[in-house]
Design a protein around this nucleic acid. Sequence first.
DNA 1: GCTCTTGTTGTACGACTGTATAGCAGCGCA
DNA 2: TGCGCTGCTATACAGTCGTACAACAAGAGC
Lengths: 231, 231
Amino acid sequence: MAREHTPKFRRAPPALRREALIEATLSCLRKYGHDGLSVRRIGAEAGVSPGLINHHFPSISALVAAAYEALALSLIRSIRQHAREAGAGPRERLRRFYEASFAPALLDPALFNTWLVFWSMISHDTGMRTVHDSTYAAYRAALESLLGELQGTAGVPRFRLRPAAIALSALLDGLWIEASINSRAFEPADAVALCEDWTNALCAGAFPSLLLARRPPRRAGRKRRPPATTA
Amino acid sequence: MAREHTPKFRRAPPALRREALIEATLSCLRKYGHDGLSVRRIGAEAGVSPGLINHHFPSISALVAAAYEALALSLIRSIRQHAREAGAGPRERLRRFYEASFAPALLDPALFNTWLVFWSMISHDTGMRTVHDSTYAAYRAALESLLGELQGTAGVPRFRLRPAAIALSALLDGLWIEASINSRAFEPADAVALCEDWTNALCAGAFPSLLLARRPPRRAGRKRRPPATTA
DNA sequence: GCTCTTGTTGTACGACTGTATAGCAGCGCA
DNA sequence: TGCGCTGCTATACAGTCGTACAACAAGAGC
């Protein structure tokens, strides 16, 4: 009888183990939503004892914050890369950005539920707030970059970049949420078409509140907003 | 020494007690978010023993569904009533609808967290799904009604009502979420201005994917979308 | 004033939570 | 081959959770 000593567990370098735990956390969130966030469930998903989580992360909320950052950055990178493919013009890149945003993988209800858990922790957990601020800034920066390139195109009026990016981000988020909650509300292509319409309207100068006034009429006490003077 | 018999508790008709429990549930959700959903916390908030909840509701998720419906209907009614005030024209009513949607009471982060809890339960709980479907239908119907009146105005092209309402709903939701998560992103007035811009663009026919073609060119293999045939 | 209905309480139950800690054991290194 | 570092397991702990159930008592009707 040989010494068939099957090891009870296998050691892993901390970096790899942390990554595996993050992956298991995301998997649990997808499967069980908010109820997936328990050391025992995540440990089981990773094939590891529950106590190991507190060995690699100071607390479970730190693990969730790490998972939030990993998923957010991964999605942003994926969408941005899809948009940058094929050296087309700025307008084309935006369209590809929209298409990537409403790809089947992004419209997964499980992903939506995961995101809801992250969002619900932002106001209570400072770590989650930090991750949200940085990843959202990165997302908005990606939009600002694309919109900025668009501004160089002939015939496109100057507009305020950051508010435009925020508005576009809101439109994308809103459509994504509606499609995720009620998948039969509309098709992904409809969402892309709506974003396209919005972009065309922006290029046509149809959004006065986003337009950049060339010479801001410095008059105080305006009721609405100084009307854009740009041609 | 008189018989000062202070009763340990006071009875209430079931309807009133249910309403009080629903109110307590909303209060707990606002205060503690997802962690507020416990029979003990809600019972304490209502000044009542935890067991009473299971006496008036078959389970705690039924109570949450009732709270979801109560809050959603209340908000819809409030916004719609604010829009209908003062018999102005359709365009003015829409503006008032936007202003009501971004009033300080609606931009409360606590309200946002409450809503996140509701949303996160939709995919798992059938009762929540039912409430969501009906209340969202009511909300969209309110938008369709306002947009429908707008269509009667001179110079406004015919557009597909339901998709337009869905798109507007997405825009409103997206802006509301961004403002709720990151209150410093933009002012309520900015959100209203963006909605106003969107509406003006719609009236100007700047959203082709929403426009209603009068005589659909029945040609197959269209790239974008077969134009709606409805009159 | 008494009875009866039933709204309400209090407790018990099993399952679950996150964290702390003591000790086991994989595996590189001498 | 065996020592030693440390990743890892296992257990204990004090909570919390939702639900069930028996007993209590408020308050209306007689």
